[in-house]
Design a protein around this nucleic acid. Structure first.
Length: 585
RNA sequence: CGGGGAGUGGCUCAGCCUGGUAGAGCACCUGGUUCGGGACCAGGGGGUCGGAGGUUCAAAUCCUCUCUCCCCGACCA
């Protein structure tokens, strides 16, 4: 039996000064975690116990569809060179050398290692499909760790990888994970949503994220209030209301207007008395090359004046990350200072291969529009009557803008809302990326050599705990669902020196434990108030208070989530929990 | 990496502006009283004030450098 008086549960009366978000404050106050350095945490008894329960649920469900491995965290850097990701990951990857000077890295994910096993061992379609997973520590040297356990440099991830003979097989593996993830998060008692996610710079593949809404999150998710549409802001689309074009000014040809000192969209629109919707926003960017010695390429993006660039969408179209141009670079392309840029009168590359000229990507919202206002590429001047295709030719039209709250759903026309959320799981169709770069091949039923097609699937273990705390807390502390709480029930005698109370509390704790419940007996020599405050704080969903009413054969059961309290007879206490706790499992 | 904030007993903080030999509350130890929502009384232990250098008769306090942590941004497989 677990006796509080013998355990290390260092609760704090006050939140640590460096904690900002609720989960961080409470996990520290409740004695679950302690910080070692920025983004590096120790898990103490209660924290580890809860995480072990989460891992138990994850493992139980994953074992139904896959096989558990355990891969090294320490990888030879060569392996990452093979996949080409050593450069891509940049400084986010921890790097070190062994005593012989060999370059090693700490694993931030395990596609490379899993693929290295697959390519050596998998020979035939008869061995497929395979689903391999592990629960293991990941290391990522984040630019800015933050929010307690929400973004850290070392954490536990359940990562799974599927290998199939063809795309249809991948669909099956993907769906299995989708369903399994739903079961896992349901069992963990989370209120989550599944959203379509950005499929990365490679494009084409399908991806879903499992999200828990909380203001502490770092992701923005778009969802429809009328239908089931939900997507990460990086990926979301919306339907735009039609915009009335301006009438042609003058003879309809390009017409310069003097706009002294009016640089921003807002200023110019106001100055000219038009809506930003009739303006073109011209953004000047450069590609970021993996090899720092290679010069970037100019990328210009046109958006409707009131729209925001979505960098994830842009990088998917360009195939590379981009950064804003510096003043000098802007001068080279536009011969104009920033603030007065426009697309007209410049020779754009109409095809990606033409690398002498800058690329011009135009958001679809501008397609078919006319008589727009853009910068004149000349200080203090803008130009009217700008009409796409007549005054400039785009490299491509694409969806490049971010959805804004209040726009219409593409599916059903309903209202779209935007919430912040934390990502707890992500499933992804990888395709042939690693099979190809790392040389995994199997023979198909015709004896022909083909690449296995892969998927990868991750769950952030600590984030389940963190999201759960974010989802269920009040000023006194938090409560976890019984399935992932360190203990299901805390039994609190109000005075341990009263032999009757203490004896009864011990009996009850023993009985509940015998019935299979996870019980903590608060046998500390503390005043009742201290015990109640601590019990409220530490995330245990039920409390049994053993007080004066034992003389009547009664104790109190306190449900932390609702703060409901009612009497229960000592004789039937086990039955009470069998009824109230077990169905929740 | 850019901007902002903070480092003083275990925790939360005051003291710094205006230099004079370090404090409070909580926690901890001993004894006693108490016991249904973070008790009370008495006694006690614990800090080279993040580090280094400088100014000064004297530095937690002023100056320079540096390290660490937090927040905003950039970044985020």
């Amino acid at each position: 039996m677990h006796r509080w008086s013998e355990l290390f549960i260092p609760t704090l009366r006050e939140a640590p000064a460096d904690a900002e978000v609720a989960s961080h404050k409470f996990l520290v106050r409740a004695g679950y975690i302690r910080q070692l350095a920025a983004g590096i945490y120790s898990y103490l008894f209660l924290g580890q116990r809860s995480l072990n329960k989460i891992i138990g649920v994850v493992r139980d469900e994953m074992d139904k569809i896959g096989q558990e491995f355990f891969l090294p965290a320490l990888h030879p850097r060569d392996l990452w060179e093979e996949s080409g990701r050593a450069a891509v990951m940049g400084e986010t990857m921890f790097r070190l050398k062994d005593r012989k000077g060999t370059d090693l890295v700490l694993g931030m994910t395990h596609e490379e290692v899993m693929t290295s096993i697959a390519r050596r061992e998998l020979r035939s379609y008869k061995q497929l499909p395979q689903i391999w997973y592990q629960i293991q520590t990941k290391f990522r040297d984040e630019a800015r760790p933050r929010s307690g356990l929400l973004r850290v440099r070392q954490f536990t991830m359940k990562d799974a990888y599927s290998f199939d003979i063809d795309a249809a097989g991948l669909d099956v593996s993907y769906l299995k994970h989708y369903d399994t993830y739903c079961r896992i998060f349901d069992r963990c008692g989370l209120k989550y949503m599944v959203v379509e996610a950005h499929s990365g710079a490679m494009g084409g593949s399908q991806s879903h994220e499992f999200m828990v809404r909380t203001p502490a999150g770092e992701d923005q998710i778009v969802s429809c209030e009328s239908c089931r549409y939900a997507a990460n802001l990086e990926k979301a689309t919306s339907k735009l209301a039609a915009v009335e074009d301006l009438p042609a000014a003058g003879d309809g040809n390009l017409l310069e207007v003097h706009t002294p000192g009016q640089k921003t969209i807002e200023e110019v629109a106001k100055f000219l008395g038009v809506s930003p919707k009739n303006k073109i926003k011209t953004l000047a960017l450069m590609t970021v090359e993996a090899d720092a010695k290679v010069k970037g390429r100019a990328v210009v993006v046109l958006l409707r004046g009131d729209h925001q660039l979505n960098e994830a969408k842009l990088s998917a179209v360009v195939g590379k990350e981009t950064r804003p141009m510096q003043e000098q670079e802007i001068q080279t392309v536009f011969s104009s200072p920033a603030g007065f840029l426009g697309p007209q009168g410049i020779e754009w590359a109409w095809d990606m291969k033409d690398d002498k000229r800058p690329l011009l990507f135009v958001d679809k919202a501008l397609e078919g529009r006319k008589n727009l206002i853009a910068g004149a590429n000349r200080e203090d001047y803008h130009v009217k009557n700008v009409t796409p295709e007549r005054d400039f030719k785009a490299t491509a039209y694409a969806d490049l803008r971010s959805v804004a709250a209040g726009e219409d759903c593409t599916n059903c026309g309903g209202l779209l809302r935007i919430d912040t959320a934390v990502e707890i799981g992500h499933i992804f169709k990888l395709g042939y990326k690693y099979s190809e770069s790392m040389g995994a091949r199997v023979l198909d039923r015709n004896g022909k050599e083909v690449m296995p097609i892969m998927g990868c699937y991750g769950i952030g273990i600590e984030r389940i705990l963190t999201a759960s705390v974010e989802q269920s807390n009040d000023e006194n502390g938090f409560w976890l669902p019984p399935q992932i709480a360190p203990f299901e029930i805390v039994v609190s005698p109000t005075n341990i020196k009263d032999e009757k109370l203490m004896g009864t509390a011990e009996d009850i704790a023993r009985k509940l434990e015998a019935a299979g419940f996870d019980v903590l007996l608060d046998d500390r020599d503390e005043r009742p108030g201290v015990k109640f405050k601590d019990a409220d704080l530490v995330g245990i969903p039920f409390r049994v208070t053993v007080g004066k009413k034992v003389t009547e054969g009664t104790v109190e059961v306190f449900r932390r989530s609702t703060r409901e309290m009612h009497d229960a007879s000592i004789a039937s206490i086990t039955d009470y929990f069998v009824e109230n706790l077990r169905p929740a499992r």
